[in-house]
Amino acid sequence: MSNNAPGPWGPPPSQPGPGQWGQQQPGPPGPFGSGPFGGPPPQPPRRVGNPGLAVAAGVVAMLVGAGVYGVIVKSLEIQSTWFGVGVAALIGLAMGRVGGANPVLPIVAIVLALVGIMLGQLTAITLAGADELNISVLDVVSDFGSDIIQGWKDGLEPFDFLVFVFGAVAAFGITKSVGEK
């Protein structure tokens, strides 16, 4: 019989005992994996986000992106798919970063991206109308708001639908990939 008590009656110093402060020393993997007690190795905790705050961040990103989109389109007087993808990317980054891997957020990001692209195009039309009529943007919105929306609807072209499709795909993919990291 062996006595494991410390002192002259304990295990000889050549045999490894428990680690400092009694911690278990790592050993060879067990028959069922390399985790504790032979189980699978522990996985890092999944990043948990705040979906409500993510939607709020997405709305803020949508408004900022739409404003920048409208100013760029109006000042350059060109329309590009990349502007819509930029708005969608901004929304996706904000929502994925804040919301984590919530499966609903990519769908919400698609809706926000489509609304953001539409608001960006309406902003460009409003800014152009304010310059053309030589009045403030608020006067254009208050006096000609319904005319701006009707003109936007009438002026939609196949290219605009392409911008919406690329924006939706970008919003979904970026939100999903950033949220899972």
Rank of each mutant, 00 (worst) to 15 (best):
N4G: 13
A5N: 13
A5C: 06
G7L: 06
G7Y: 08
W9M: 13
W9T: 13
G10S: 08
P11D: 13
P12N: 14
P13R: 10
S14E: 15
S14K: 14
G17A: 15
G19F: 06
W21T: 12
G22D: 12
Q23G: 11
Q25S: 14
P26V: 03
P26H: 05
G27Y: 04
G27N: 08
G30S: 07
F32W: 14
G33W: 02
P36S: 08
P36C: 02
F37C: 00
G38V: 01
P40H: 00
P40G: 00
Q43F: 01
P44L: 13
P44S: 12
P45Y: 00
R46M: 12
R46L: 14
R46D: 09
R47T: 08
R47L: 10
R47I: 10
G49V: 07
G49F: 02
N50K: 06
L53Q: 11
A54R: 01
V55F: 07
A56W: 08
A56S: 10
A57M: 07
A57S: 07
V59R: 00
V59G: 03
V59Q: 00
V60M: 06
M62W: 02
A66S: 15
I72E: 03
V73F: 06
V73G: 02
K74G: 05
K74Y: 08
E77L: 10
E77N: 15
Q79P: 01
Q79F: 09
Q79S: 14
Q79Y: 03
Q79T: 15
S80Y: 04
W82D: 06
W82C: 04
W82M: 14
F83Y: 15
V85M: 15
V87Y: 09
A89E: 09
A89K: 07
L90N: 10
L90M: 15
L93D: 04
L93Y: 13
L93W: 10
G96C: 08
R97H: 14
R97P: 02
V98T: 07
G99A: 02
A101I: 01
P103R: 14
P106S: 05
A109V: 03
L112N: 02
L112K: 02
A113P: 01
L114G: 13
V115K: 01
G116I: 12
I117Y: 09
L119K: 06
L119A: 09
L119D: 03
L119E: 04
L119R: 04
T123C: 09
T123G: 13
I125H: 05
I125N: 11
T126N: 06
T126E: 05
T126W: 03
A128L: 07
G129K: 08
E132S: 15
N134P: 05
N134D: 15
I135M: 12
S136F: 01
V137K: 07
L138D: 11
L138W: 07
D139R: 12
D139C: 01
G145Q: 05
S146N: 13
S146I: 12
I148D: 00
I149H: 11
G151C: 03
K153F: 13
K153D: 04
K153V: 14
K153Q: 12
D154P: 02
G155Y: 08
G155F: 04
G155C: 06
L156Q: 13
L156Y: 04
E157G: 12
E157Q: 15
P158M: 09
D160G: 13
F164R: 10
F166C: 14
F172S: 01
G173A: 11
T175S: 09
S177H: 06
V178Q: 07
E180L: 08
E180P: 00
